Amino acid sequence: MTKNSAPTSGRAAVSQQIADRLRSEILAGIRIPGERIRQELLAEDFGVSRLPVREALRIVESDGLVTLVANTGAWVSSLDLAECTETYLIREQLEPLLLRHSVMNFSDELIAQLVDLEAQIEQAGNVEDYLDLDRKFHRLSYSAAQMPQLASMATRMWNTTHHYRRAYTRLIGWEGLQMTHYEHKLLVEAFKHRDADEAGRLMYGHLRRTRLELSRHPELFETAGSTNRKK
């Protein structure tokens, strides 16, 4: 180990801590789309220079959660309706493929975990618990695919649409989630039979329905303009 490796390693650890907090705050809705991220405040909170903060921002940018604009700053990523629609159209092609490859490798233990998560989702007591469990359910369902590049792309696109799913879920309320629960149950049945084609077909429909429902509520996209257009 060289003399410089320890400080570099320590800075990387701090950058990861900052990135983890930013990721958590954005996914939890504490930081909303279009909100500017003040690097100096993060540096002050963690008692560090801006260098590890900038490194942390690059990490969450790769997650699709932050937009960096050269010589300007950083914002929580946001989408307009057209961008969200495009993202869902891509997800409708990628995620069924990822799921089909995953289902073929499901173990009995993994299926049991998915069955349990589906039951927990239906019993979720609030929107944040529902979204957290729903995310765990789908990410776990993709986990056996052995396709890391595709999984990374899917996660990034999931992240960019997460805020709008939250807003939509709050809008429709628990009664409006009954179709989602039904679709999850159908997915679980396909998982139990390791029916990869049926699981892929169901996932396509699951995503398509969400896209169409979001398109009926353009007001969900009016609170924050797309950060991709910031100068």
Rank of each mutant, 00 (worst) to 15 (best):
R91F: 02
G205V: 06
D132R: 08
E25L: 14
G10I: 08
H217M: 10
R11Y: 12
R36N: 14
M203V: 03
T8S: 13
L57M: 12
S143W: 06
E122S: 14
T160E: 11
L177M: 15
S5H: 12
E40K: 06
H181L: 09
V53R: 14
R23F: 04
Y168F: 12
P148A: 09
N4T: 09
N105I: 10
A167T: 05
H163T: 10
N71W: 05
S143H: 03
G34A: 15
E198W: 09
A151I: 01
F191P: 05
N126I: 02
N71I: 01
M147H: 07
A145V: 04
V115L: 08
D63F: 01
H206E: 07
T180W: 04
L171H: 11
P33H: 02
S9A: 12
I121A: 13
L99C: 03
A74P: 04
I90K: 12
D45R: 09
A19P: 01
R166V: 08
P218D: 13
S77N: 14
H162C: 04
E128T: 12
A124F: 04
Q39S: 15
M157P: 00
L94S: 08
W158D: 11
A196D: 13
R208N: 15
Q39P: 11
V127T: 10
S226G: 13
L68K: 09
E219F: 12
M153A: 07
N71K: 13
R165N: 04
A43I: 00
V127Y: 01
G47L: 02
T223F: 11
S143L: 04
R91S: 03
R54D: 15
H217G: 10
R201T: 06
S152C: 08
V103F: 03
V115P: 01
D20I: 03
I26S: 05
L57H: 03
S78I: 10
T227V: 09
T155N: 07
T85F: 10
G173I: 09
S77L: 08
L99V: 03
L202P: 07
L99D: 07
S141L: 04
R229D: 12
S226M: 06
I59H: 07
A145K: 01
G64S: 13
E198L: 15
A224C: 03
V14D: 11
G34C: 14
Q123W: 01
S62R: 10
H138G: 03
E122D: 14
I26M: 12
A196M: 05
I90S: 11
L187T: 00
K231F: 13
S9H: 10
S78A: 13
Y168M: 07
H206T: 03
E219G: 14
E183D: 08
L42T: 09
Q149K: 12
Q39G: 15
G10V: 03
K3V: 09
N105K: 13
M203H: 06
H184G: 06
R23M: 09
I26H: 03
Y182R: 05
